[in-house]
Design a protein around this nucleic acid. Structure first.
Lengths: 165, 165
DNA sequence: TTATAATCCTAGTATCCGACTAGGGAAATC
DNA sequence: GATTTCCCTAGTCGGATACTAGGATTATAA
């Protein structure tokens, strides 16, 4: 449960690439797509909201591309995911659009506080991590020691880097 | 982002009804559906996994229904949502099925630690809340002071108690 | 000035999944 | 034995997600 969208997953990966390249001039979407094995066309759609949120800047023409609009240390993961998928909101009564009281169950709702606490908890985590931090602490907890090749082969079809099933 | 499924949302609401009625004999799905305004047929599907997880017990026949298998204080929200939608896993490489290293990006993945921290954070919250606690602290933070009727009317079509848009 | 490489923007599509509905047993009560 | 409930399987339908396609715009470079 609580799967993250490909949109956010891809978008964050793309942003880490830009963070790694920060200061070395723009990186093209094609390069990012190649490095992170992302569909280039789809990636293009993710660039737009990120740009409009002021997180990245685009340079057109040859040797153009994207670069972070601010240093990696000033970009939180929370800002990235909010730009792509909006604010964390497990239920609609925790969105900004929600007009308080419009849900008839509001006065007797026992579950709302649960999702509020979940939201606050997630927000705290996401807003406490910057792209700079991600790039330095990179492989603090690698998930693997040794992988039998046949085991890898067996997984074949399904991309293990996609969202959770 | 990070919306909760109707399945979990409905299921938790149903469980709070059972928690409230704990000790007073079984409650029928029809009663729960009525109280929480849930589709009865769908609710039936949620009862199965909850029963198989050992959280509720069913009594057939007239005056039958469901009741909690254990006291509300012993049922965490985490157990409820896991029974319905599985463990919290923002990305597949954080599921139990994932065989470590099967993702080629594993050794260089910068984003994995983010979702790991999110998962841990959410788990901690969900496992720290019991149904008993929900029933007592119920309306600690009501979302409403006064609602103009016309404002309620205007929302009409869309159920504000559903998952986030 | 022409070609090329890149961002920028809109629209369409298609597959999958979530949220149901339908229908029919099996058991318990009255 | 009639009713009420749980129990279980299967099917359906709409909408969203994850793309693809196609083009316009801008900058570089030969």
């Amino acid at each position: 449960m609580l799967q993250v969208s490909q949109r956010v997953h891809y978008g964050l990966r793309a942003m880490t690439e830009l963070a790694k390249a920060y200061g070395n001039g723009p990186v093209s979407l094609a390069e990012i797509a190649e490095a992170e094995r992302l569909p280039a066309g789809y990636l293009e759609q993710l660039a737009m909201p990120l740009r409009r949120a002021g997180l990245i800047e685009g340079r057109r023409g040859l040797h153009g591309g994207y670069e972070l609009a601010v240093p990696p240390a000033d970009v939180t993961v929370g800002a990235v995911v909010r730009a792509l998928d909006g604010a964390v909101a497990p239920v609609v009564c925790l969105t900004v659009e929600y007009v308080p009281g419009s849900c008839e169950r509001d006065p007797v709702c026992l579950s709302r506080s649960v999702w509020k606490r979940v939201k606050d908890s997630v927000d705290r985590v996401l807003d406490s991590i910057t792209l700079a931090e991600l790039c330095t602490t990179s492989c603090a907890e690698p998930a693997v020691t040794f992988i039998p090749p046949e085991q890898i082969q067996r997984l074949g079809a399904k991309d293990p880097c996609s969202i959770a099933g």
